[in-house]
Design a binder for these strands. Structure first.
Length: 509
RNA sequence: CGCGGGGUGGAGCAGUCAGGUAGCUCGCGAGGCUCAUAACCUCGAGGUCGGUGGUUCAAAUCCACCCCCCGCAACCA
């Protein structure tokens, strides 16, 4: 398992909005998983990107008096630059307007059409322009669209349909036989529940008379393909573009629960029809609920990643997101909670530990690491970090980032206790105690080194900084199996402490 | 029968899938330490884990029913 490559995707984000908390969370998870598994010997490849076709984009562009492409270019570039600035850099950034993607979509559509799984039919239905979709009678609330509270318009038109229903039973069997295809488990059950209802076929086109901002159907130039055959196929077209289609069967899709159905039902049936391998796993997370009462006025209602980065640092923001949300469940976002985490876990916990250890190393030994001489207490400290590593690995493998971090912080707590119990600051003042004080600090430096390595997927900037303060080369972060005691040879010097995470004081809080 | 989330010490949460000492942060009380970012460590007060019934040697955790709260006005992940 450990050696298997891993292809991670975020959704391609629709360019009708600027990057916000939801986009950022999914992208942070992808980045964290990529770093985590890379450090454990797996090749990882992350793709994110933008979804650029559709009504809303055409309308927004018209409103701004620019072409749809120009509009999409601008917002797409905003996503790309945001991820670069925040260090969430994917291996590839795909756009649905990329010529390669367009050609790929047309190739797949042509193949499925040739096979007879796409047919032409007349459709009459109730269409909501806000949702850009047709509704069944029974889905309406008092005759109105449940989202937009508007009466849908009856439209009759001819369109192309994908024979999705043909693959339903095969999909049900797959999900029953391979429970790990969708995680967390609750979402698999939800999908199986959806599949107990008739799923019908999927309308996959729009006449150009109504919408022409899309990819032409290869078999009928009067139409463009709509939404799913365009957007979902980007997961594969991106790999084709970079010449790594071999990674496709290892795909793990990270999504939020709002797009569960397209990813859990439309997408696998499309892949079956296209005779492409299925993705390996669908990983579904919940929503961040905005607690407006707890938001600062300056923050407003929108959580912009660049603002959070500027205010608290990207690492603190990442930590909060990963520590606070149980992957799969909803969570509340509040700036107060972020600050509480930052102060308690990062400043008082990790930051203060690094600070006191490096300060003593500096003050008592001019930064020179002394020989170790393990006692039972020292071995217990090592055991605490060994346990943290095991717990962390198990929890992250299960997407339980919050528990993984909790496990690592148990070891940090242990280290803080160890400082008090061994009291190197007392030992160092007595000539007879100096060797022991030096040995204790050696253990603590190792603890910090292991911490830097384990925390790297979550707090990459901090890990690099900690390594530097410890006087270690940056590549030490990838050497997870470096034995305890081997990182600091005789004469090794550490640097003077720096505040990794200054406390954030809130007036009146 | 719209969809979804939730009710755990004063506040905010984890733990529920794989039943077996109820854990974390903040706050509160007492003490310790003085290396450190007024941080760190120890001890303590405070919970019948929404309710009722059931399964079990054992339930916050499984099953049934019931009560209550919140989101779906957004930046849709």
């Amino acid at each position: 398992m450990t050696g298997e490559p891993l292809y991670l995707t975020t959704p391609i984000y629709y360019v009708n909005a600027e990057p916000h908390l939801g986009h950022t969370y999914t992208t942070v998870v992808a980045d964290t998983l990529a770093r985590f598994w890379r450090a454990r010997g797996r090749e990882t490849f992350v793709v994110t990107g933008t979804d650029e076709h559709g009504d809303k984009i055409a309308q927004a562009a018209a409103k701004a008096s620019v072409s749809p492409k120009a509009y999409a270019d601008r917002v797409s570039a905003l996503f790309r630059s945001t991820w670069e600035a925040t260090g969430l850099t994917p291996g590839y950034f795909v756009r649905t307007t990329d010529p390669g993607h367009v050609a790929f979509v047309q190739k797949v559509l042509a193949a499925i059409h040739a096979r007879g799984d796409i047919y032409f039919d007349r459709y009459r239905g109730l269409y909501c322009f806000g949702c850009e979709r047709f509704y069944q009678e029974r889905e309406l609330v008092n005759g109105l669209c449940p989202d937009h509270k508007q009466a849908p318009t009856e439209i009759a038109e001819e369109n192309y349909f994908f024979r999705m229903g043909r693959y339903k039973e095969r999909l049900v069997r797959l999900l029953e036989d391979e429970p790990d295809r969708i995680t967390p488990e609750g979402y698999r059950r939800e999908v199986l529940a959806m599949l107990r209802e008739p799923i019908g076929d999927l309308c996959i086109s729009r006449p150009k008379s109504r919408l022409d901002w899309g990819i032409d159907l290869p078999f009928d130039a009067r139409y463009v393909t709509y939404v799913w055959f365009d957007a979902l196929l980007s997961y594969v077209s991106a790999l084709e573009h970079v010449g790594r289609l071999d990674l496709w069967p290892t795909a793990h899709h990270l999504i939020a629960k709002d797009i569960l159905k397209p990813h859990a039902i439309f997408w696998p049936t499309m892949l079956m029809a296209a005779e492409l391998p299925l993705y390996r796993r669908l990983c579904v997370h919940g929503y961040w609920q905005m607690d407006r009462d707890k938001m600062s006025k300056s923050l407003g209602n929108v959580v912009r990643p660049l603002e959070m980065q500027a205010r608290y640092g990207m690492d603190a923001f990442r930590y909060y997101l990963l520590r606070e949300m149980a992957f799969g469940q909803d969570a509340d976002f509040s700036e107060a909670a972020l600050i509480a985490r930052l102060n308690a876990d990062l400043a008082n916990g990790l930051g203060n530990l690094a600070s006191r250890v490096l300060a003593m190393q500096q003050r008592y030994f001019a930064g020179v690491v002394q020989p170790a001489a393990p006692t039972p207490a020292d071995l217990a400290l090592r055991a605490a970090f060994d346990a943290a590593r095991r717990d962390l690995d198990a929890q992250v493998a299960d997407f339980a980032f919050h528990r993984g971090l909790e496990a690592l912080w148990r070891a940090l707590d242990h280290a803080n206790k160890y400082v008090v119990e061994t009291a190197p600051f007392t030992l160092a003042k007595d000539p007879g105690g100096r060797p022991r004080a030096g040995a204790v600090l050696h253990e603590l430096c190792e603890a910090l080194r292991v911490t830097a390595q384990l925390v790297e997927p979550f707090l990459p900037e901090t890990a690099a900084r900690l390594a530097r303060l410890l006087g270690l080369p940056a590549d030490v972060l990838g050497r997870l199996d470096l034995p305890w005691g081997d990182a600091f040879p005789a004469g090794h010097r550490t640097a003077a402490p720096e505040a990794l995470f200054p406390r954030v004081e809130v007036p009146g809080a």
